[in-house]
Design a binder for these strands. Structure first.
Length: 314
DNA sequence: GCATGTCAAGTTGTG
DNA sequence: CACAACTTGACATGC
């Protein structure tokens, strides 16, 4: 009978610092200045480049012992833009990009690199404005489609705005869930943020709907709710059922006693790694500006806590 | 080559 | 009321 040892799966967010792997982006203003055939070729180039970069990213993570990778929302830049937008079929009629994305799925599976998405702040499923909700659904569906192709099992979303108060906002969020396809809905996870929604706010919704909670301990420390880190860890982990729980870790750039504790530091201060996470099996995305260097550093320091004395990011 | 100004989107909180 | 802060670069352009 083999029983897997409890272990943290460390995750890198979106980009590399030292490794020569770059994801390209595009701006609407520039694309709009091109003739349509040129624009399509330009965007097709970028999507081919980014799909290849994703293969390299998965390989590089594996080489470094990094077990998770968050994919940039710009992987297919402007895909959902009202004017410059496109479908993968239009952009890539030969299916080359799609074939590469299927290779990513095989590779990530083989190398055991967990892939996720994290739509950015413009994606607000609980907005009071209908048009905003519609574009949020559109963006989530796009990312879900890519997620399905590459085998990403998580799309992490902030709960959104607070218009009308916390309970009204949470109700709107819950009403937004059925607007999603099963592909998107099955991958959706919510994250506590540092301004509006705490774990205590979100856990009941997560427990009731089956949408798991990604526990961001830095946000929780910025916006406390009476739950201890231990309690929030246990309850959020439980929302993942049989799946591996997901959490976020970062350190404040200017320290915990500064006026701005929200900005992220280059590295993780080992003191910020919660004791409650020791001995757990979970994925921890490292949100730090020094990217893979920071992931490797925190892996080493948590693995050898006796050596972390006096260790500082700056 | 290198510096510069600009970039789709929402929401909150500060000045 | 206007604007920065979030994830923060990366891009094309102009010198």
């Amino acid at each position: 009978m083999d029983r897997e040892a409890a272990v943290i799966r460390w995750g890198l967010c979106c980009q590399f610092l030292d490794s020569p792997i770059k994801f390209r982006t595009a701006t609407h203003r520039y694309v709009a200045s091109l003739r349509s055939r040129v624009a399509r070729r330009y965007l097709a180039d970028i999507s081919r480049h980014n799909a290849q970069a994703l293969i390299q990213a998965v390989e590089r993570c594996h080489q470094l012992g990094i077990g998770a990778f968050r994919i940039t929302s710009q992987i297919l830049p402007l895909a959902t833009h009202p004017e410059s937008g496109y479908t993968l079929e239009q952009l890539d009629p030969s299916g080359e990009v799609e074939a590469t994305l299927h290779l990513v799925a095989d590779l990530a599976d083989q190398l055991d690199v967990r892939l996720s998405f994290h739509p950015d702040q413009f994606v607000v499923l609980n907005s009071e404005r209908e048009t905003v909700v519609r574009s949020a659904v559109q963006e989530l569906e796009l990312q879900a489609g890519i997620a399905e192709m590459i085998g990403a099992d998580v799309i992490v979303l902030h709960a959104g705005g607070m218009g009308g108060g916390t309970s009204a906002a949470l109700e709107r969020l819950e009403r937004g869930l059925p607007l999603l396809s099963s592909t998107a809905r099955e991958r959706l996870a919510l994250e506590n943020d540092d301004r509006c929604f705490t774990p205590r706010d979100l856990l009941p919704l997560c427990e009731r709907t089956g949408v798991p909670l990604v526990y961001d301990v830095h946000h929780h420390r910025c916006l406390a709710d009476g739950l201890t880190v231990e309690e929030a860890t246990a309850r959020s982990s439980a929302t993942w059922g049989d799946r591996e729980p997901y959490a976020h870790l970062s350190s404040p750039r200017d320290g915990w006693s500064s006026s701005n504790t929200r900005a992220h530091a280059d590295y993780i201060d080992p003191a910020d790694f919660p004791d409650a996470w020791l001995g757990r099996t979970m994925t921890v995305d490292v949100e730090a500006k020094a990217k893979e260097r920071a992931v490797l550093a925190v892996m080493a320091s948590v693995g050898h806590p006796e050596q972390s004395e006096g260790w500082r990011s700056k």
